[in-house]
Design a protein around this nucleic acid. Structure first.
Lengths: 195, 195
DNA sequence: GTCTATAATCAGATAGAC
DNA sequence: GTCTATCTGATTATAGAC
């Protein structure tokens, strides 16, 4: 193999991230070696260290960036005034956002245990912030009388688990269209919260 | 350390399984070494190979036994005649069974990707059998007019995801009692299926 | 049944050539 | 910016002593 020359940092950097995301989602962080990532990018293992100080930071950045983008994207969409409308928007947003980013979502859920303590705490805080977005909606609906829920925190966890589960079975060209999936999930959530 | 003598196969075998379960649930299959498992049991790494032909089989047996016991335990409880009663029994069974076996459940969901192809297929079949147990209930309730669901397969996946999610937050001495958790989840499921 | 020792391989990360 | 070469240490699994 001929040696590569010239500057590619603006190309290779994103490629490293993309390859790491794909491989870690498929095989797990601990099961993927730096050599595998390098091979997928088309460079040698040593070259990866130009783009990340170490393997742990690579994982942490993938998870942090995913959750931060999730939060900012939701912040842009959370405009509805009424609890029912806001809950519907949240359901459809959550489903679409997760369907579109299966690898990031999978990693953010599955690789918590491979984070070092400080990184773990930071990611847990971001995830908690997102859960609070839904709980705030449920509490507002409770106050307004739109929802009937004995425990808003349990309902928050139940709804997020239900919606995120879409990634375990949904396929883009499958039996159900994206719009149909959105609508069915929303109907189940709507009924579950007593709206 | 003095060398151990005498026969302990009936003691050590289950200890190996138990240690492997605990460690794999905590750190992930790929991240746990045979030496760590051996150390947790109190033997040397080489001795583990008296109880498993290799690391892969150890994982497979943990997952297979968990799912087989899940299926047989449910088969013993599935007595209710009416769809609503059967669904209630299923919800409470699923929640309790999962709360009681967090490690096995976690491994069965998270370590699919570390199974070799044949083992993966076998575990997937068992998981599918369990999902079919719930779908059968939903289809019966649909036919009898007790449930109103646009898609029974989606509802099956949604309900299982929602109920299994209890393991991500439930704590035995937490704010909510087990009976209360069972009842709240059942109420959300009952409303979600339109009963 | 368990140990020690070892084979063969692979890991993450770094140094220095180009 | 990337490569090659290398360091250091860990990995699964086996062989043979006891």
């Amino acid at each position: 193999m001929a040696r590569k020359t010239g500057s590619h940092s603006e190309i290779t950097g994103p490629l490293v991230r993309a390859a790491a995301q794909r491989l870690i989602a498929a095989h797990g962080f601990a099961a993927v070696s730096m050599r595998q990532i390098a091979s997928a990018v088309g460079v040698q293992a040593g070259a990866l260290y130009l783009y990340t100080p170490d393997k742990q930071t690579l994982l942490f950045n993938i998870m942090r960036d995913h959750l931060q983008e999730l939060l900012t994207t939701w912040a842009d969409q959370a405009q509805h005034e009424h609890p029912i409308g806001r809950l519907e928007t949240f359901c459809k947003f959550h489903i679409n956002y997760h369907i579109d980013r299966p690898d990031e979502v999978f990693i953010a859920y599955m690789e918590m245990r491979n984070l070092e303590p400080d990184n773990f705490a930071a990611i847990e805080t971001l995830r908690h912030e997102y859960e609070d977005q839904l709980e705030t909606i449920l509490l507002a609906g409770q106050s307004s009388g739109d929802f009937k829920l004995p425990d808003s925190r349990l309902a928050t966890m139940a709804i997020i688990a239900m919606l995120t589960g879409v990634n375990t079975w949904y396929q883009e060209d499958g039996r159900l269209s994206r719009q149909r999936v959105e609508r069915i999930y929303w109907n189940m959530v709507r009924r579950a919260v007593g709206a």
